[in-house]
Simulated assay, not measured.
Amino acid sequence: MAIAYRQRIDDDTEFALWKIEEQADELYKQLQLDEAEKAYVEKLSHSKRYLHWLGTRVLLRKMLSTDEYIDCKVDAHGKPYLVNLPYHISLSHSFDYAAVMISKTHKVGIDIEQIKEKVERIASKFMRPDELAFIGEDKKIEHLYVCWCAKEAVYKCNGQKEVSFADNIFLEPFSFEHHGVLNANLHKNELNLDYTVGYMQYADYMIGYVKEDK
């Protein structure tokens, strides 16, 4: 399967989606892994998480247009980074899709989620009352998923643990569209960062994506 969707944000920032239709061994053959990575994916084998891990790495390879080994590590906060290549990256996956965002100049964050009604039951766990107040009844589920994906993308972009979606990431009111932007703020202790978050609905999935303002 080729890249399903690709969007350029600016001259050196873009994201892409990969629909995972391959078997795991097909994806595995497209990668170069060191011994530690081989041991790690062996533990994941025969699970959906295994396909997701492989899918994000294959997509990353396609976006970077390289056949060389990509040394992709994860820091103490769980944020992935490239050891020897000059890119900031963010990875996400949900059911049949993998998503990757890259930039040479900005920290980035991306999240993809399959749209399901269950989000309404947990909305109060990641949104404050004033945020719930601007959610319209029309397209309510989609609107809530934009909020979740936006907060997740901001969380990933910042790259620090112990950030609460409800208590530290704030969204300004916005109306739902299939493709739009919203304003967000991450505030915790001395940290106070503003973000402009893009979002789009792709089939029955929602994607939120953001690059750090400089």
Rank of each mutant, 00 (worst) to 15 (best):
1 M>Y: 08
7 Q>T: 11
9 I>Q: 09
14 E>P: 01
15 F>N: 10
19 K>F: 02
19 K>C: 12
29 K>Y: 01
32 Q>C: 05
36 A>M: 11
37 E>P: 05
39 A>E: 13
41 V>S: 06
54 L>T: 10
55 G>A: 15
57 R>Y: 00
59 L>Q: 10
67 D>N: 08
73 K>W: 11
74 V>Y: 11
76 A>I: 12
77 H>A: 07
77 H>G: 03
79 K>Y: 09
81 Y>K: 05
82 L>H: 01
85 L>G: 01
86 P>M: 10
88 H>F: 13
92 S>I: 08
96 D>V: 04
98 A>I: 07
98 A>L: 11
99 A>I: 06
101 M>K: 02
109 G>Q: 14
110 I>F: 02
110 I>L: 13
110 I>M: 08
112 I>P: 00
113 E>W: 03
114 Q>E: 15
115 I>P: 00
115 I>N: 00
119 V>M: 01
125 K>E: 02
133 A>H: 08
134 F>T: 01
138 D>Q: 12
139 K>C: 05
139 K>Y: 10
142 E>L: 09
142 E>R: 11
143 H>I: 07
144 L>I: 06
146 V>L: 06
148 W>M: 05
150 A>W: 03
153 A>T: 04
156 K>Q: 03
157 C>A: 08
159 G>K: 00
160 Q>P: 01
169 I>W: 13
174 F>D: 03
174 F>W: 07
175 S>T: 15
178 H>A: 06
178 H>R: 10
180 G>Q: 00
180 G>C: 06
184 A>Y: 02
187 H>Q: 14
188 K>V: 14
188 K>R: 15
191 L>T: 15
198 G>E: 05
202 Y>D: 03
207 I>N: 11
210 V>I: 07
213 D>F: 03
